[in-house]
Design a protein around this nucleic acid. Structure first.
Length: 394
RNA sequence: GGAGAGAUGGCUGAGCGGUCAAAAGCAGCAGACUGUAAAUCUGCCGGGCAUUGCCCUACGGAGGUUCGAACCCUCCUCUCUCCA
């Protein structure tokens, strides 16, 4: 176990099991079980994967077909959102996020850094931290590296993210450099802020590489963050509006420079195609709002490409959404029914859609892992991409 | 039987002399969504051409006033409310 030597968070260990080209097969151990990588982490910002109960999340497929590979092993939640509602005191009193939501798997919390970016109109970034107004009631709050680590620790998560600044796309080299250096200073402060006492539930801590779309900055950032005593390293500041080619330039140039003995996490990405391409670049962890949000907006992922379930062509379509899919949705109802529910504004439609999309992502990653295990990832990826992107015939 | 109100594009419903092919919402048809202020947002939505633009058919029906009418007048048809 690699992290035994690096001596970071005592409950967190990462094992790199196998490589297939740059693609990596691994697993890490947390307070709440083992997580097999490459992994996709469904987003549950407010301690809830939207439109799903925790139990539905555990049972995305029927009966005995429920496999550990197709049940999420780790979820995301968000520091910023949870500190505003329901509040950290309450969350801590009720036993942390996991207990709160009845979830026994692992949880990774985002530090709130992304909200500094996405809620830019109501914040003020300083060296010390970020002062911002709640989007809920306008009240004034403050988040710093120390505060963020403290909150994430009190939430009881398995993996905490360092507090970073996510610069928006289009900023100058000088501005991104300034922002990146701030992120680096905040990274050191995040590490220093980790509770030292033994026996305390101390989350693993991941650092975040920034640097925008500038190769020299990315290189500097990954070297700097990679040399710090983090348990994992993430690429942040990506898919914030930049063209896809630029995003992959960043991923492909950064991933090989990330420490090989720690999990490599690409934040906020992406489409099924993005996941395949990023695994090929050596990424181990992903999270993205896309499967859940798109599900609620009627955009469903299938092995043959995307389906907009509200489209008239599905009104009379008796087939399952994806004939190859083993999720509850595909095993129990038709496209026609899903369209009917969605068009009618039925809540069950959102539930079925979300079950499917989350399952699709988890299933895709399970197949990715199998492919790497059998040294056939390149072939698998190509076959997958060809089907995902071809013209849909039916 | 009497008194009043009203009929507008698939529906609800604004407009009450020109800037009206006609607000808005709904329905319909598409599209977007990448560390979630999102069950959200955007576009199209009488027909036919077309580069701005043009032509046709349209505001219950038939006439009329006017340079010009969904808007004013007359009659007709139908609907609703109230009083007998």
């Amino acid at each position: 176990m690699l992290s035994a030597e690096s001596g970071v968070a005592e409950h967190f260990t990462f094992e790199l099991l196998k490589v297939d080209g740059p693609a990596r097969l691994g697993r890490f151990h947390t307070f709440h079980g083992v997580v097999n990588t490459p992994v996709f982490m469904p987003v549950g910002t407010l301690a809830s994967v939207k439109a799903m109960t925790t139990d539905q999340l555990r049972h995305l497929t029927l009966g005995t077909h429920n496999s550990g590979l197709r049940t999420p092993e780790i979820l995301l939640c968000n520091t910023y959102h949870l500190m505003l509602r329901p509040g950290i005191d309450l969350l801590e009193r009720l036993g942390g996020v996991q207990r709160f939501m009845g979830w026994d798997g692992a949880v990774l919390s985002d530090s709130g850094g992304f909200q500094v970016f996405s809620l830019a109109s109501i914040r003020n970034v300083k060296e010390e931290g970020v002062e911002f107004r709640s989007h809920l009631d306008g009240s004034l709050h403050f988040l710093s590296p120390e505060k963020s680590v403290e909150i994430q620790t009190r939430m009881g998560v398995d993996i905490a993210m360092a507090f970073d600044e996510c610069p928006s796309y289009g900023l100058s080299h000088a501005d991104v450099e300034r922002s990146m250096e701030l992120t680096h200073r905040w990274a050191r402060r995040s590490l220093a802020a980790r509770p030292a006492e033994a026996g305390r539930h101390t989350p693993a801590l991941f650092g975040i590489v920034q640097g925008g779309v500038y190769p020299d900055l990315r290189k500097r950032s990954v070297e700097e963050i990679g040399s710090m005593d983090f348990d994992g390293v993430a690429i942040g500041g990506v898919s914030v509006g930049e063209p896809k080619e630029e995003m992959f330039e960043v991923i492909c140039s950064t991933a090989p420079l990330m420490p090989g003995d720690k999990p490599r996490y690409l934040m906020g990405v992406g489409t099924p195609e993005d996941l395949l391409d990023s695994v090929a670049a050596g990424i181990d962890m992903f999270d993205c709002v896309m499967p859940t949000r798109n599900a609620r907006n009627g955009s469903l992922f299938t092995s043959g490409g995307k389906i907009a379930i509200k489209n008239a062509q599905y009104a009379d379509d008796p087939r399952p959404l994806d004939g190859e899919c083993g999720c509850v949705t595909c095993r129990t109802v038709s496209r026609a029914y899903l369209r009917h529910l969605f068009v009618g504004g039925e809540i069950a439609g959102l539930v079925y859609n979300t079950i499917h999309n989350v399952f699709f992502y988890l299933d895709l990653m399970a197949k990715v892992r199998q492919a790497i295990a059998s040294n056939s990832f390149a072939t698998f990826r190509e076959a997958c991409l060809a089907r995902l992107t071809r013209e849909r015939e039916s």
